[in-house]
């Protein structure tokens, strides 16, 4: 009786979860193909005109390009710094490594608004007026926890005597890291990088404090758009983002295998 009940419950929960996850996606994608100029479901007719209108919409493409840049560069910086930092912590090369690791992962636990205000004030304090640089710095801090957590997890399962083995077989220390450590932690690192990229790309609460008129990230621009001209252009943009995410997942799956990525 109990096993059957829990089995049934499992399925109910799964169905509900799928329903909640997929309904918004389905609706957004469906609305993006509507002919009507208002956000209405079910969509009327079929057209691609809202996709064409993305190009003409004020600043949408520019902000998408900015978001992609910020997300890519900040993830890359976090990736290099975070991995090196995680190695130092795991190998106990620095005293108090655990404290450092916790600190680096802490932005994940602080509300974005608090961070945003803090960054704004800090930037004012040091006289950093350039919105682009400020955004980049803030997003490095924002993406770091994702990298640190996954790299630390991968490293904790990595047997460093493999690096010693590679050295004894003729690899210098940096080369041993490259030939043995990197391939073994790559799946974890890739998943961390993917999450970091996405977190940066759709961050709103921190970025809202740091943008200016000329430098607006995509989430902020989308919300502006929605307020000014609430037509299905926003839906079309969202549909494209969903497509991009799916493509990214497929590429990652091909490169390292989604299963290996999610087990870490």
């Amino acid at each position: 009786m109990i096993p059957r009940l829990s089995f049934a419950l499992c399925w109910v929960m799964l169905s509900l979860a799928l329903l909640f996850l997929f309904t918004p996606i389905v609706i957004v994608v469906a609305v993006s193909f509507t002919e009507s100029a208002v956000f209405s479901f079910p969509p009327q007719g079929f057209s691609l005109k809202w996709y064409y209108s993305i190009r003409n919409a004020d600043g949408l493409l520019a902000s998408a390009w900015l978001s992609a840049q910020v997300a890519f560069i900040s993830t890359l910086i976090s990736l290099v710094l975070g991995t090196l930092c995680a190695i130092a912590v795991v190998r106990r090369m620095v005293p108090g490594g655990d404290v450092i690791a916790t600190f680096m992962a802490s932005p994940l636990m602080i509300p974005g608004l608090v961070l945003g205000i803090a960054f704004l004030q800090a930037a004012r304090l040091v006289g950093l007026n350039d919105a682009y640089t400020t955004l980049l710095v803030a997003h490095v801090v924002l993406t770091m926890p994702f990298i640190m957590r996954t790299v630390l997890a991968s490293l904790s399962m990595f047997d460093f005597s493999m690096v010693d083995a590679a050295r004894m077989l003729g690899c210098s220390y940096p080369r041993a890291l490259w030939r043995v450590l990197v391939p073994n932690i790559l799946p974890g690192v890739m998943s961390g990088a993917l999450f970091a990229f996405i977190a940066s790309f759709d961050n709103y609460p921190i970025s809202i404090f740091l943008v200016d008129v000329h430098t607006k990230t995509l989430p902020i621009q989308l919300l502006n758009q929605l307020e000014m001209s609430p037509d299905p252009t926003v839906a079309a943009t969202s549909a494209l983002l969903i497509l991009a995410t799916v493509l990214a997942l497929i590429v990652c799956d091909r490169l390292v295998g989604l299963k290996r990525m999610t087990t870490i």
Binding site: D159, S161, M162, D164, A165, R167, M168, L169, G170, C171, S172, Y173, A176
Partner: peptide, 14 residues
Amino acid sequence: AHKRNIGVVFQNYA
């Protein structure tokens, strides 16, 4: 280490 040409078999094989 990498220039010593010494072979090592590690406890957990590595």
